[in-house]
């Protein structure tokens, strides 16, 4: 009995030990981060606030991708596509029907969840490889598709919207208000994912990642959990797309090319697969790396992320966050 349970039992058995030992520093770090996140927009110039907001936007998408790649061991090269769908759902609702913008979020969530579920069914019944193929093709196919339905999507020109203003009672500037809206969504998504991972479902996902055959033997319904993980993951990418529309107030097909999907994947690999802070670091990578390296050469972002991906897979498969985690684990081991 014990033998067959190992894949799920192992993380569960490890959890209490790390929790007891690391709870304090981790809790402190989390509190510091939260305070910093709340104070930052009042201390920084609007452009920096905008940059932070964008990091949080990408962090949501990377969080979604991590749920699939880092926690369930499946791969998607099409999350840029779900990001685009979320962005377009919000944009079309705002542009066409003047829907109040908070309501665009549930709409974007619903649409991307359903699409993710529908796509997950054919692709996930099979090996992860095919999922990569199908998702990559979909992300590529989406761009001409968006251009085709011009009356709704604005074609290649895209849609230009107006940014939401902060309600008068808050006394916040527009950029600060947007920042807090996005922070709320990012925080909510992180809490939801953390809760999910701590539940029975999270253990099932980990079992699938570690050994599919063993997980199935233990009674984990592979197709069900894989499809659900894919749908949730797509939904988070859609949420990121939706808040992206709030912040940028502009969508066009060419801002969602297959490069975005690959950058998101690069983000989670660099940030750290299957870790708490990985998505945040990954979001920062997705936003800052291209803008900072573009000055060297137009091709520099590609060369840097390509090299980083390969090197990180060799030396630190758990990314930046994993390196920090390993360092603290080594310190703990030495103490004992």
């Amino acid at each position: 009995m014990n033998g067959t349970r190992t894949p799920t039992a192992a993380p569960a058995a490890r959890a209490p030990r790390t929790r007891r030992a690391v709870l304090k520093p981790q809790g402190v770090l989390l509190a510091v981060l939260l305070v910093a996140a709340c104070v930052a927009p009042f201390q920084l110039v609007p452009f920096r606030v905008f940059q932070l907001t964008m990091v949080l936007v990408y962090a949501i998408a990377v969080l979604g991708l991590d749920l699939l790649v880092g926690r369930t061991g499946q791969i998607s090269l099409g999350h840029g596509g779900f990001f685009a769908i979320g962005a377009y759902v919000a944009a079309v609702l705002l542009d066409r029907w003047d829907v109040p913008y908070p309501l665009t979020l549930p709409a974007a969530l619903a649409v991307t969840f359903v699409l993710g579920f529908a796509l997950g069914i054919p692709a996930l019944r099979l090996r992860g490889l095919y999922l990569a193929l199908v998702t990559m093709t979909i992300a590529i196919f989406l761009v001409p598709l968006l251009k085709r339905f011009e009356s709704l999507t604005g074609g290649s020109m895209g849609l230009t919207l107006t940014k939401p203003d902060a309600p008068a009672w808050t006394g916040l500037a527009q950029d600060q208000w947007l920042y807090f809206c996005v922070l709320l969504v990012t925080g909510g998504a992180t809490l939801a994912v953390a809760g999910l991972l701590r539940s029975r479902v999270g253990r099932a996902l980990a079992a699938i990642r570690d050994n599919e055959a063993a997980a199935e033997v233990m009674g984990v319904r592979l197709s069900r959990y894989k499809t659900l993980a894919f749908a949730w993951s797509a939904m988070l990418a859609g949420a990121a797309g939706c808040v992206n529309t709030w912040v940028i107030a502009f969508v066009s097909p060419d801002s969602f090319t297959s490069t975005l999907s690959i950058m998101l994947l690069a983000g989670i690999v660099v940030g750290g697969l299957g870790s708490l802070y990985g998505p945040l670091l990954g979001g920062a990578f997705v936003f800052f790396m291209p803008t900072m390296s573009q000055g060297i050469n137009q091709a520099a972002p590609g060369v840097i992320s390509g090299l980083l991906i390969i090197v990180i897979m060799y030396v630190a498969p758990t990314g930046l966050a994993g390196l920090a985690g390993r360092a603290s684990a080594a310190r703990l081991a030495r103490k004992k």
């Binding site: 791969i75 390509g306 897979m313």
Partner: peptide, 22 residues
């Protein structure tokens, strides 16, 4: 694992593409 291999060949994809552009 397959996941690692796919990610590495994707890294190669980005690298070669950008290197040609460079």
């Amino acid at each position: 694992p397959e996941l690692t291999l796919v990610i590495v060949t994707l890294g190669l994809f980005i690298l070669v593409n950008a290197a040609a552009g460079w």
